[in-house]
Design a protein around this nucleic acid. Structure first.
Lengths: 188, 188
DNA sequence: CGTTAAAGTTGACGTTGTCATCTGAAAGGT
DNA sequence: ACCTTTCAGATGACAACGTCAACTTTAACG
């Protein structure tokens, strides 16, 4: 038997899934509360029982995505078998994958002004990221190089998405740029 | 006496200015065709005499911003007195200034999917940029390092804007990251 | 001077986010 | 067992928005 709170939680989950699906299919303008409700099997007003407004719903979607990414990073960093440089590449690839395969979600995750709740989820992945980087360049340099790598990946994805980073225009691509940066990491 | 085409051109200019002003004041959601028309002294339907739709108006605003940036870059690169590394810093600072002082405009200039017209304007600044960079690292490496620098600046601005690049979190900031990259430029 | 083309206005329509109000049923106390 | 509370959900309504069609006005031109 399903209790009332269980049913409400299921609706909330359906709303989040529907919003994420619509975002992936048709971009931000395809995410209307009416369609979200419809896909979740409820009416247009139902989302207001679970989220303050549309913005909070989207923030929740972005927060879940950051949480999933943080979980991946934690799992990666805990693996004792993989070499550190391999873990680092895997983490950066995880970000690149979201940016390329789910660009609308990626943009949502970086939309200003960022909600405090979402920033906390995004910050969770920093710990494992810095741990792996600390193994490579030493704990002192980890912060600085971590920021450099993350901003670079973010910039690469942004300019790729807006069509300003093309191979024909720059005679290079994201992978080459990243290799240059990774190759320049001080070996400690 | 003002001719009809002059008046029409003036209206078009007012519409662009109004849209840019509204964007700067209240962000994208403040830019409504009704308010744009109102500020330009015309009605809500008038913009359709000058732009296909709202999207084309915004594209025109972004295109003008790219053009202005390209003009600055061209002027900079033509200055024989300034040293090359100084010109490079000035060009990157121009981008940083827009990103920080007019974040909504900056985001508009990088909004996907980018219009072909806007991409052409954005590409105009590539020539002077590569020229300056060629003086520093040689023409062969200019493309590669140019892409690296531009994506880095773009990434820095994006993560700054979304609150994910803070000094407390990464013990560093945009200037330090850029100095690291500029310091790593091969002196040819 | 009549014709034409284009700038601008206005009414209307569909869509959207949001709120107020109403309904129904599960939860919990007596 | 009954009554009360609470909350998920449905629905009607409203304002704002982008957009289109129809209309008006006026400069330009043969």
């Amino acid at each position: 038997m399903i209790s009332r709170v269980e049913s409400a939680a299921a609706t909330r989950r359906s709303l989040l899934d529907a919003a994420a699906a619509l975002l992936g299919e048709g971009g931000p303008e395809a995410v209307t509360l009416r369609e979200v409700g419809s896909r979740a099997g409820v009416s247009r007003g139902a989302p207001y029982r679970h989220f303050d407004d549309k913005d909070h719903l989207l923030t929740a979607v972005a927060t879940e995505a950051w949480d999933a990414l943080a979980d991946e990073a934690v799992a990666l960093s805990a693996d004792p078998a993989r070499p550190a440089h391999d873990k680092l590449r895997a983490m950066l690839s995880g970000l690149l994958a979201i940016g390329r395969e789910r660009p609308h979600l990626y943009r949502l995750m970086h939309r200003p002004p960022a909600a405090e709740e979402m920033l906390r989820a995004a910050a969770r992945s920093q710990v494992p990221f810095l741990a792996v980087l600390g193994d490579l360049v030493g704990p002192d340099r980890a912060h600085h190089y971590g920021a450099l790598l993350l901003t670079s990946v973010h910039g690469i994805l942004g300019m790729e998405a807006s069509g300003q980073l093309t191979r024909e225009k720059w005679r290079t691509d994201a992978d080459e740029i990243l290799e240059t940066l990774l190759g320049a990491l001080p070996a400690d």
